[in-house]
């Protein structure tokens, strides 16, 4: 009954349902931390879920000049890509549902899909704000993608493997590895913030400038899918980082899942605090920041890792 097990994995755990529920929890956490830092009360736990239901029930409008096919396909695609990535993330132990030698690269690729979808979404919605947002999405992508890749590459090089399971096992046997790649974690988190288009890197969908950027024209359930996809991307990003930078999880499965939750909560907390503490920077400032600071730091980190590898001989 492999097919049943596959379906359960894809649709329920750790696939779609689990990813959606956990990401809604993370959205709540993000909003709550953000609100508390702003001296506000913040939303109740169920708010993201109600928001989702509300959007699903809202009127669904396709602009006359927009491409109806793309308008329908893109939101599904972005959520599907993000949720699929969850299948390759180890949650209850060092191994994911479908571990294989190159799963790290697959996750990076799957996380790229929503960004490309966002570009197309803006492009095909025939709206000037969408068009500006699309351009900015691409510029931002070109800015953070290199540091993100370098950051993710660092633990892979250290462990000498593209497999997340191998990286996790390596770090569990060599705990100092986590300290050696702290700079990569920092670069990675900033790049992730850029990927998720959150303050200070939210120029592609800056509300006060271009309304909502690429998703300006989206309403109702299509918008719900886009928002859900962003949440799931945040989950995937945090989950990936908890494995490749923070040594994943150990112990029996119930303790392991708790440990997993603790690590992603910590990472999302950092992301939420960052967005509460700064203003949005312009897109060309984002580009300059990325190439002036993130890339050199990531390259230096890589050099350090290579030296360690040669020196220690692991």
């Amino acid at each position: 009954m492999d097919i049943v097990l596959d379906l359960v994995r894809i649709l329920i755990f750790p696939g779609l349902l689990f990813a959606v529920l956990l990401s809604l929890f993370l959205e709540w956490l993000d909003r709550k931390i953000y609100a508390r830092m702003q001296n506000r009360v913040g939303p109740p736990l169920r708010q993201p879920l109600w928001d989702l239901f509300k959007l699903l029930a809202k009127e669904d409008i396709v602009p006359e000049r927009a491409d109806p096919f793309m308008f329908t396909v893109l939101p599904v695609l972005t959520l599907a890509a993000a949720a699929t990535a969850m299948l390759y993330i180890p949650i209850w132990g060092p191994e994911s549902a479908y571990p294989f030698w190159g799963d790290l690269l697959v996750i990076i690729f799957l996380l790229t899909v929503p960004t490309m979808v966002l570009f197309l979404a803006g492009w095909f919605s025939a709206n000037p704000f969408g068009a500006v947002g699309s351009f900015r999405t691409v510029i931002q992508f070109l800015s953070y993608e290199v540091p993100l890749l370098l950051a993710v590459l660092t633990p892979a090089v250290l462990a000498g493997s593209w497999s997340i399971s191998d990286i996790v096992r390596f770090q569990q046997t060599h705990p100092w590895a986590m300290a050696a790649q702290l700079a990569a974690l920092g670069v990675g988190l900033l790049a992730l913030q850029g990927k998720l288009e959150r303050v200070p890197f939210d120029a592609p969908e800056a509300e006060t400038e271009i309304v909502a950027g690429p998703i300006t024209e989206y309403t109702g359930r299509r918008l719900a899918l886009f928002r859900l996809s962003t949440d799931v991307q945040m989950l995937v990003g945090a989950a990936l980082f908890s494995n490749i930078f923070l040594a994943g999880v150990v112990g029996p499965w119930y303790l392991a899942i708790l440990l997993f939750l603790a690590k992603i909560i910590f990472l999302v907390g950092v992301l939420a605090a960052l967005r509460a503490m700064v203003a949005r920077i312009r897109i060309e400032q984002m580009r300059a920041f990325s190439w002036k600071y993130l890339v050199p730091i990531a390259v230096a980190q890589m050099a350090v890792i290579v030296l360690i590898k040669v020196g220690v001989g692991v």
Partner: peptide
């Protein structure tokens, strides 16, 4: 300028 924390404060 996207600095909502300043706004709230």
């Amino acid at each position: 300028i996207g600095f909502d924390t300043l706004f709230m404060y």
